[in-house]
Nucleic acid binder design. Structure first.
Lengths: 125, 125
DNA sequence: TCATCATTTCAATAATCGTTCAACCGATGA
DNA sequence: TCATCGGTTGAACGATTATTGAAATGATGA
């Protein structure tokens, strides 16, 4: 839909059609919001960016981020709850990786978009 | 990059190449996180879903959402700070619309993805 | 089995975020 | 100019959310 169409405000309330759907699917909306919320924290997003370079265990991530394992583990828990990362055990280590290619693309796209979008404000695409 | 590659944990620390980049662009990461965070709240995402049906003024949105204008305005402020919506004045009204087609797609994709992803847990795309 | 290493969980504290109401602003029309 | 309507802002409060260290778990090797 064209983002620059005519608003309803112009017509008098009396003869307005009921254009807007009563409600969006609340469940889907909640899941989508949860996914975005998990992505919406710099330390967690940085963790995903690290994982975009390849799988890693918690201690490696903790070293890279200069944080305690507990902190990293808590963040990974949030990312896992949002199905953004997957884990598997390998001996004593637990290896984390981005859940699928879709997430890889999402992270790269977000960073690319954010890299190009600053300074002037980027009015069109 | 393939999400299921070999983790660094396997090789001994001593002879590990410095594979991981020292740090991601922090500024871009921060902006990307801010964008996701703005999307990561059900009421705000619902507002965007409403705007995906066409531009609207604050009072219409308030009516649709059954909320006070102040609340709606505060939410729109967050969305605007993340460059997700645009506003223009029209007489007494302030008309909000999704910032561009890119945002329209983002919202629709998120909702579509969340609609298909439930129930079983969705292990592969 | 015991000791140890890697990781997770728990609980408490600190920080952040969303909502609300009241005051304020900006445009309109009398 | 004043009154009014639509919208915004600011501050206070309550509710989430993140971080931290300590205790618990799980796998390994002696």
């Amino acid at each position: 839909m064209n983002p620059q169409a005519e608003p309803l405000c112009e017509e008098p309330h009396s003869q307005r059609r009921e254009t807007r759907k009563p409600s969006v699917d609340e469940a889907a909306l909640g899941r989508a919001a949860e996914l975005f919320a998990a992505l919406g924290d710099p330390p967690r997003l940085r963790l995903l960016a690290l994982l975009a370079q390849g799988p890693a265990c918690v201690s490696d991530l903790a070293e890279d981020e200069q944080e305690g394992m507990s902190t990293i583990s808590q963040r990974l828990k949030v990312l896992r709850a949002a199905s953004l990362v997957r884990r598997r055990r390998q001996g004593k280590h637990v290896i984390y990786a981005l859940a699928d290619q879709h997430v890889v693309d999402l992270v790269f796209n977000a960073l690319a978009h954010a890299s190009e979008a600053q300074v002037v404000g980027k009015s069109k695409e």
